[in-house]
Amino acid sequence: MKKYIKYILLLAVIGISSAYYMYNKPHKNIQKAKADFTLNATDLFTEYEADEETANAKYLDKVVEVEGKIQSIKTEDNGQTSIVLDSGSMMFGVNCQLDTTKVETVNRYKEGDNIKLKGVCTGMLMDVVLVRCVPIES
């Protein structure tokens, strides 16, 4: 009986530590994640505008790499920074919220510049929204 105890203890330790690991599972690292789709901002927006449901089925929760012209850059009081990419539409575009660790990258860009960003697609309101975006610089 005694010799089993250490195996049972070992199992318990493995169990508890893996539960702890699961509980503290880190967020997906977008920087390292491979893009599921690579396209330009205009095409992404057009697909959403044409058929939101189909586009949602295709892009929701996926890592999307978009390329486009910067329509506006905005930093909120709370430090949240977004870059809106031109979509050919008058008012709306692809709204990319930068990952909080990548906020300083906006200093290297200005309106009208081309930029490549990779982020998680969360759907469309007026803009198509990507969150936790990281810039892709060659």
Binding site: N24, P26, K28, L60, D61, V120, G123, L125
Partner: peptide, 26 residues
């Protein structure tokens, strides 16, 4: 209007449960 998937949590697991089990955000 808000997108449910744009909610950010401290813990990835909570975010996953929130989206998949409770809000069914797909």
């Amino acid at each position: 209007a808000i997108l449910i998937k744009a909610f950010e949590f401290e813990k990835a697991l909570m975010q996953e449960h929130f989206n998949e089990n409770y809000m069914e955000s797909n």
